[in-house]
């Protein structure tokens, strides 16, 4: 069964389950296993993990940051090393590892969910949740305009560079924010005014409903999967809450 066959609502519940696990699991083994399951799910359904490649570098940087922060500030466990005011405690590394795993799981699951469905599917899902179509259709608009506007920002930077604006060092980049951001903002406002006018003049928001070229129909296996995932969450929650009562 391919990823495209799953209903976006199934994917949403899966995403919620992953976020729940990332916040509720505390041990390295638990978090590691959930992360592995999450990655495997992507691999089985899409036969590729290529799109997640861009995450690796960011995760390495974040991992390093978490590790350094924990080494400097963690005060749990026993003191294992001291050099001047720098004190390293025994819990620093385990805490850093669980922190990295949690962040990775949230990061991976978020990307997995938000790249798993087409904008049209997101729109239809939102409409199933009774969001009016005037709002639900905005999902597609952001996917359409993001690459266009990114290219436009590069053109703006080029344009200012030819006027003598330097963009080599970090300091240059800091100084170039305003001269590149403002044209971008003005241009964006012009664009949104034109786009909204074009949409309205083609009847956007004329009625409460509209005809879509496809529809969402939840299937038996989707219902089964959603029920199973909700059950897992309920059981896990109950087992955590019951001892407290």
């Amino acid at each position: 069964m391919g990823l495209s066959k799953l209903d976006p609502r199934t994917k949403l519940v899966w995403y919620a389950l992953m976020i729940y696990f990332s916040l509720s699991c505390q041990t390295t083994v638990q978090l590691g296993s959930v992360l592995l399951v999450c990655i495997m799910a992507s691999f089985i359904l899409t036969r590729s993990l290529k799109q997640y490649k861009s995450m690796i570098m960011i995760l390495v940087l974040l991992g390093l940051q978490i590790l350094i922060v924990q080494l400097i500030f963690c005060r749990e466990g026993v003191l294992i090393y001291q050099w001047g005011i720098l004190k390293i405690y025994s819990e620093a590394i385990p805490l850093a590892i669980t922190g990295i795993l949690k962040a990775s799981l949230i990061f991976f699951a978020s990307m997995q969910f938000f790249t798993s469905a087409s904008p049209q599917e997101f729109t239809l899902m939102l409409m199933k949740f009774k969001v009016p179509y005037r709002y639900a259709m905005l999902a597609g608009l952001s996917v359409r305009f993001f690459p266009l506007m990114k290219a436009e920002y590069i053109s703006i930077m080029d344009s200012q560079r030819t006027r003598g604006l330097k963009m080599e060092s970090v300091w240059d980049n800091l100084k170039s924010i305003i001269p590149t951001f403002l044209p971008f903002l003005y241009r964006a406002v012009r664009r949104s005014t034109e786009t909204a006018l074009a949409m309205e003049l083609r009847g956007y928001g004329r009625s409460r409903t509209r005809t879509f070229s496809s529809a969402l129909a939840i299937k038996q296996y989707d219902i089964a999967l959603i029920t199973a995932m909700l059950l897992v969450m309920i059981i896990s929650l109950t087992s955590k809450v019951l001892p407290l009562i």
Binding site: A188, S192, T193, L197, M199
Partner: peptide
């Protein structure tokens, strides 16, 4: 509609500028 479409488009400007400032922060 102008406000709704404006929200999406300025939202994209928002993301791109967060990326730009994020890269500077990563060094500073």
């Amino acid at each position: 509609t102008k406000a709704l479409v404006g929200a999406v488009i300025i939202g994209i400007v928002f993301v791109i500028m967060e990326q730009v400032t994020g890269r500077i922060d990563a060094v500073l």
